[in-house]
């Protein structure tokens, strides 16, 4: 347990180091916030990368949330089809579900290379679009899993009751199913958002020159050597991650309470 936090602690401590030598001398010489100031420097700072990351994460989560949520609904209402066209649709959707789950089952590296190859075949310039497509692909499974497992615990007769009381299928979904699934959709989105903000491997292959996301920037800085500025950045990112986890925990404990009453 302590070992889990040792490296993190080191990063946090050194982010307040006053030692300005950029070489590999890692000695703590005093407390300073200079690296944090440095962080927001408009030229050498990380602001622009943060914005890129946020933008990519926003669109990816949006797309994957919509597709994943309605996808989960569709998968749960999959019924044996009798007509020929219905059967091939069913088969296609079964295949689609398998494919949708792949990005989190195979090594990210393969996904990255496959998408890189596909994009260069399609002559898509590497940039925000390719990043969003890639991130959406690996965000879908997270949303799909959380929403599907929530929907499957819902009593199907609740939605039927709504229909029975005069709601059209769409209204029944909007007034009953969606509000009940909302916590799961939200926590799925949170997870997807964290994964998108965090992704390095896949982004590594499909990013463009102008679209260096935050993790990519961290990698390129870290690869060269130990730069104290990265320590500060990492501390900030750690703080954000903890905040997200706390939010997630609050959400799930709120849901737990709802169940208890």
């Amino acid at each position: 347990m302590l070992l889990l936090y040792l490296p993190i602690l080191v990063v946090v401590v050194f982010s307040f180091n006053a030692n300005t030598t950029r070489t590999a001398t890692m000695t703590f010489t005093g407390f300073s916030l200079q690296w944090y100031k440095n962080l927001f420097d408009p030229i050498s700072g990380f602001g622009v990368h943060l914005v890129t990351s946020l933008e990519v994460a926003f669109w990816s989560v949006l797309f994957s949330c919509v597709m994943g949520t309605i996808g989960a609904v569709g998968l749960l209402h999959r019924k044996k089809q009798k007509s020929l066209s219905g059967r091939s649709l069913e088969r296609f959707i079964n295949f689609g579900e398998q494919a949708a789950m792949l990005p989190i089952m195979i090594p990210e590296l393969i996904m990255g290379i496959a998408l890189l190859a596909l994009f260069s075949f399609l002559r898509l310039p590497m940039g925000k679009i390719t990043l969003v497509i890639a991130h959406t692909s690996f965000c879908i499974p997270y949303i799909l899993i959380t929403v599907k497992s929530r929907l499957s615990t819902l009593d199907p007769s609740i939605e039927e009751a709504a229909r029975d009381l005069g709601a059209s299928p769409i209204r029944a979904f909007l007034t009953v199913t969606l509000p009940l699934a909302a916590p799961a959709v939200l926590s799925g989105c949170l997870l997807a958002f964290a994964m998108s903000m965090d992704d390095f491997v896949i982004s590594f292959f499909v990013n463009g020159a102008e679209t260096t996301t935050l993790p990519l920037k961290v990698y390129s800085s870290v690869k060269v050597g130990v730069t104290p500025q990265v320590n500060a950045l990492c501390t900030v990112m750690l703080g954000a991650a903890f905040l997200l986890v706390a939010m997630g925990q609050l959400l799930s404990s709120a849901r737990g309470k709802e169940k208890k009453i």
Partner: peptide, 24 residues
């Protein structure tokens, strides 16, 4: 119709996951 709700996701996954893998 309900099953069709899974279609966008399936198309996406087939296009950007299955086809990409087949392509490499």
């Amino acid at each position: 119709g309900r099953m069709l709700a899974a279609l966008p996701m399936s198309i996406w996954a087939v296009l950007f996951v299955a086809l990409a893998l087949l392509y490499i």
